[in-house]
């Protein structure tokens, strides 16, 4: 009996080991002119995740979604034994551009789920997300489309402001600065309280007044917002 169970364990180990692989993860920003802040690409077990749709955002998710800071989320995944690739694009991933992250989970085959996040700019607390997808293990190329989510932690006032969690408004990195309007009075509404599919931004066509600092002719988007191409070797 003991021998049998030992054998069974060995076989299970072999199976798990066989499912690990070399992964190349390409992320392309498909939007017309929305920026992705530094991406977090994480391979992890079913014990952790980056966000849960329908649930209130964690502080770590809020910190990423309102200001683009992925450090707290990355630390959570690392502490739980997951693998992370931080900021593969080395900064903002502009519209149309592609970046690549690579990892191998041979040494930690239980890290068989993939999650990806980055803040969408200009938004108040919008982010592109892939939520805990089981990684394919058959060698080949796989494509997925990602949607934009709203973390639900900040009112979508569409005004220049802060990237700190809990502070109103949108962070404005230098490339975005000349493209945004000023002196908006603010879109109405409150923080929604739960993670959900983003309904998009409205913007307006007045660059020096109006309700929104977002340019409606430039920064609207429809889902999907990103394409992920996974190559398994």
């Amino acid at each position: 009996m003991k021998k049998l169970s030992a054998l069974a364990s060995l076989m299970m180990l072999a199976t798990v080991g066989a499912n690990a692989a070399d992964y190349t993860i390409e992320v392309q920003n498909l939007t017309r002119s929305t920026l992705f802040t530094p991406l977090l690409v994480a391979a992890h077990s079913t014990d952790s995740d980056l966000f849960s749709v329908g649930e209130p955002a964690t502080l770590a998710l809020q910190t990423m979604a309102e200001g683009g800071n992925i450090t707290p989320l990355a630390a959570e995944i690392s502490d739980a034994g997951g693998m992370i690739v931080e900021n593969p694009a080395g900064g903002l991933l502009v519209a149309g551009a592609t970046t690549t992250a690579m990892f191998n989970n041979d040494a930690a085959p239980t890290n068989d789920h993939l999650s990806i996040v980055a803040m969408l700019l200009p938004t108040n607390d919008g982010f592109v997300g892939l939520d805990s997808m089981l990684l394919p293990t058959e060698p080949g190329t796989y494509r997925y489309m990602l949607k934009g989510y709203d973390a639900g932690t900040e009112a979508n006032n569409e005004l220049r402001g802060s990237g700190a969690p809990g502070e109103a408004g949108m962070p404005v990195p230098p490339p975005l600065d000349p493209l945004l309007g000023t002196n908006g009075t603010g879109m109405p509404g409150d923080a929604e309280g739960f993670v959900h599919i983003h309904r998009g931004v409205l913007g307006d066509t007045d660059s020096v007044a109006g309700a929104s600092d977002i340019d409606a002719t430039r920064h609207r988007w429809l889902n999907p917002v990103a394409r992920v191409t996974i190559t398994v070797k």
Binding site: L30, R32, G96, W221
Partner: peptide, 18 residues
């Protein structure tokens, strides 16, 4: 605004302020 193929951002329409 950019001479590249991208996903469409939708139309705004007169009814939505353009």
């Amino acid at each position: 605004i950019v001479d590249e193929l991208r996903l469409h951002s939708g139309v705004i329409s007169y009814d939505d302020g353009l």
